[in-house]
Nucleic acid binder design. Structure first.
Lengths: 205, 205
DNA sequence: CGTGTTTCATAGTGATCATTATAAAACGAT
DNA sequence: ATCGTTTTATAATGATCACTATGAAACACG
């Protein structure tokens, strides 16, 4: 165990070299989960798309749930980065507008599945996968909290009226993003979704 | 075959009587699909909740996809009724507002699963279930069309400005409904969702 | 070259999937 | 009571599920 750790830390290669690129394989797994969701993504198709045998996947990423969570991490990125983005925006309005527009762009990428992985991959599922739904819910809740805090900040600073419904606007933004994901998966064009996003911003004072 | 048809038409009972209530069983199936989605709803748990053996289910509803489609029909009801509702409303604004509010109520019912069966049950899935996703998409598209037509009607009648973005508002309404479903499944309260719905209506001119 | 270590590839594990074959049960009609 | 019909219940079908046991392959090091 000690030698193992030492070897890993020094970066020396011992034993048979891996035949896969970890980042690439994880990215492939992300795309599979993104497209088909957690439950409908079988280990066999994951194995195929990741170009890894099942035992290699388990050795590198743990079981299917762990793999999914790691892939979800790759999809969402660091949530504190989102907070930074929201806080560093000119206004809460601008932050929400950008969030919506960037979501639309991401949901309609040509080289990725349609919609939002966070929204669709665990939208429903068996009781055994309920914990994954909670993970997704918590991420949404966090982002909504960031937005709401920023809106309240703007209200105190006079950039938004004191009567603004921070909870309503933050919820609408997150809700609209999730709704845009559904429409994107239905095949709606980027142009149309951008128009819906613009329309949603009309709700702001 | 001729006798069979005749017997069915005349309503006479022949053979062993069924031990299940078709409507009740279908309703139970709907609840299962609503909660867990199409793929995660196994025939074994459907069989349990419907209080029917698998062979009885297949005899009465066909295969799993047919059962799902029949259950989805029960959930959505007659879409032309929705069109009637939209057209008979005072205004397009009122129709959209009512649609949002009724959706929230339905998504947060105490005796039913959270969220929208149309939105969550086929939000993702295997390639073999892609046809079901299309069915859901078409229903959404139809309702969106009804709304858009009504908005354009109001624009011509002067109840809405000529500059109104009918596509944007109709899309926002449908999108928001789908987004509200996600938030409902996350555990958001009816009160909070109603506030988000109200906020969405602020986008109207 | 031989040894230790790690990963690879194959082939399996039992469990569960949707679906169905089989036959007994329960009825109306004869 | 027997027959025809329909539904019941049990048990099985092959396929696929997530996951793993096993052993060969491929490297660094002595």
């Amino acid at each position: 165990m000690i030698t193992m750790k030492h070897v890993e830390e020094s970066g020396a290669k011992i034993g048979r070299p891996r035949a896969f690129d970890r980042d690439l394989a994880l990215s492939s797994a992300m795309l599979v989960f993104w497209e088909h969701g957690f439950e409908a993504s079988s280990m066999s198709i994951l194995s195929e798309k990741m170009k890894m045998n099942a035992p290699s996947i388990y050795a590198a990423f743990g079981d299917k749930k762990s793999l999914f969570l790691t892939a979800l991490d790759l999809y969402t990125g660091d949530v504190t980065e989102i907070k930074k983005f929201i806080d560093s925006a000119e206004t809460a309005y601008e932050a929400s507008d950008q969030l919506l527009k960037q979501s639309v762009v991401r949901f309609t990428g040509r080289s990725t599945p349609s919609g939002c992985m966070l929204a669709s991959s665990v939208a429903s599922g068996s009781a055994e996968a309920a914990d994954l739904q909670e993970v997704a819910a918590k991420i949404r809740s966090k982002i909504e909290g960031f937005l709401r805090t920023r809106i309240e900040f703007d209200m105190r600073n006079g950039q938004l009226p004191k009567t603004t419904d921070a909870e309503g606007l933050a919820g609408l933004t997150i809700g609209t993003i999730q709704g845009l994901s559904v429409l994107a998966r239905d095949g709606a064009s980027r142009k149309k979704l951008l128009r819906i996003a613009e329309t949603a911003m009309l709700a702001w004072p």
